[in-house]
Design a protein around this nucleic acid. Structure first.
Lengths: 249, 249
DNA sequence: GCATGTTATGCAATATTATGCTGTTTTATT
DNA sequence: AATAAAACAGCATAATATTGCATAACATGC
């Protein structure tokens, strides 16, 4: 394996996990820890990551997580976030709903890209404000305590006045025939409004949510344009969503 | 687990709970208290938190401080916040502008008191959401990066639709004849709108700001109802504000 | 093809760091 | 003042880092 390949591998691990252990990588790549140590030293010197005792962490290593709750299957969400990033283009206007997957996405937005981001989610707004070239517009309103997003008439009203390029719609449940569903009525209203406010809809969703069903319907599957999971696009679990004019990522 | 990760974890706990106990963290992370003690010692030395007997507490509140700016006169602001609390009554509707003093106030609001709080400030909203009996309504809009509050037409428009009992107006400069002033035009607009939206105006202000002057005027001193400083109300430095129909606290 | 220089890698010896443990001192609280 | 909890200092151990060196792989010019 080439040194360059190792470097890319390490950087990728760091991006996805926020941290790596020397021993893990050495193990995975079947090289000595010394080699990995040297790799990380170089990457540290070129400021691609931060070397720490025992491994390395990503540069903007901060796990700001206001609720302090553990993020469930963070790794998968991190992968999804990485894929989602590829849909975002310089200068676009983006709408981000709440949810931990979108939080991962927000965290990964490069500081140098110029964007305008709308969001009703408090943690996401906090995250986005650290990006110097991202203009953040908060969709205000009554804050829901557990989801930490704004809900209610005022927020929906504000949404009705915008039309963005792309919306990342945090997805709780997605079902091939029943569509996207939620258990919280107020959040359903918000998400419906977000769909109306956006030209393209992206549904980032970990695969275990596929096929699940909740009480209230947000929209049909056909209304979304991209479905991102941690799986490969050709995975059999996604078969139900083919031939539906949805792009799988 | 890497030391770096522990550090981030501790900082996060401090952010969320304002204080942490050594034993709790050691328990949570399955390491010895000594290790955590050493961690906290380091974080204390790098001024990320404040070490206290038995654990650690956050520096200012918004220790999540992307710009890394120091929070000035922490102690005085805490005193002011305590005084301000006495003005808040069960069931009221309160409007909080941004600023570190108001942040201290928000953090001190007892969880058991029932309130409705409006605010355009991100850190304050984050803090308020931890209070189970406080209904939080965020004044949305374009977010100003350094002050972390919403500004612009949308926010001002939202303010124009409310009338609250009492407004705590974070004050940058207050002058007996020139009134309240600010250096940021957009924030001036927000504060003006906040004044119109409130029956009573409270100006929490550390004494060193008294007599200072900035570029743009928010309002005359007469328009505020309460002036809170860290000084005793009969302090000579406040003489200029007597006989002005302002209550000094 | 061959000599030479460069780079990458692994290895071993040594140094440094991180962590937990013990015993003692300090601090907060009753 | 008595007490319990916490802080501290010092030490032992294990993990990680550093350094120097030997070898192997590779490129380059002849």
């Amino acid at each position: 394996m080439l040194k360059e390949e190792r470097h890319q591998f390490i950087l990728n691990e760091v991006r996805v996990h926020n941290r790596v252990l020397l021993t893990d990588i050495a193990d995975l790549l079947h090289v000595s820890v010394d080699t990995i140590r040297r790799d990380i030293k170089e990457l540290h010197q070129s400021e691609k990551l931060k070397k720490v005792h025992g491994g390395a962490v990503s540069l903007g290593f901060n796990n700001y997580n206001p609720t302090g709750k553990k993020i469930y299957s963070q790794e998968k969400k991190a992968q999804i976030a990485e894929k989602g990033l590829s849909l975002i283009k310089e200068g676009q206007v983006v709408l981000l709903s709440g949810g931990t997957t979108n939080l991962e996405l927000a965290r990964r937005i490069p500081s140098k890209i110029k964007l305008t981001c709308f969001t009703p989610s408090l943690p996401i707004a906090v995250q986005l404000l650290t990006k110097s070239n991202v203009e953040v517009i908060f969709i205000g309103g009554r804050m829901s305590k557990d989801s930490q997003i704004a809900v209610g008439g005022s927020a929906i009203n504000m949404l009705s006045e915008i039309k963005v390029d792309i919306c990342f719609l945090g997805t709780n449940s997605i079902h091939p025939t029943e569509g996207l569903t939620e258990f919280d009525w107020e959040i359903v209203q918000m998400k419906k409004a977000m769909i109306h406010s956006s030209r393209k809809i992206v549904s980032p969703s970990i695969s275990e949510k596929i096929g699940s069903l909740q009480r209230y319907k947000i929209c049909a599957v056909e209304e979304i344009d991209f479905l991102i999971t941690e799986l490969e696009p050709w995975d059999a679990k996604l078969d139900a969503f083919r031939n539906m004019n949805i792009q799988l990522l």
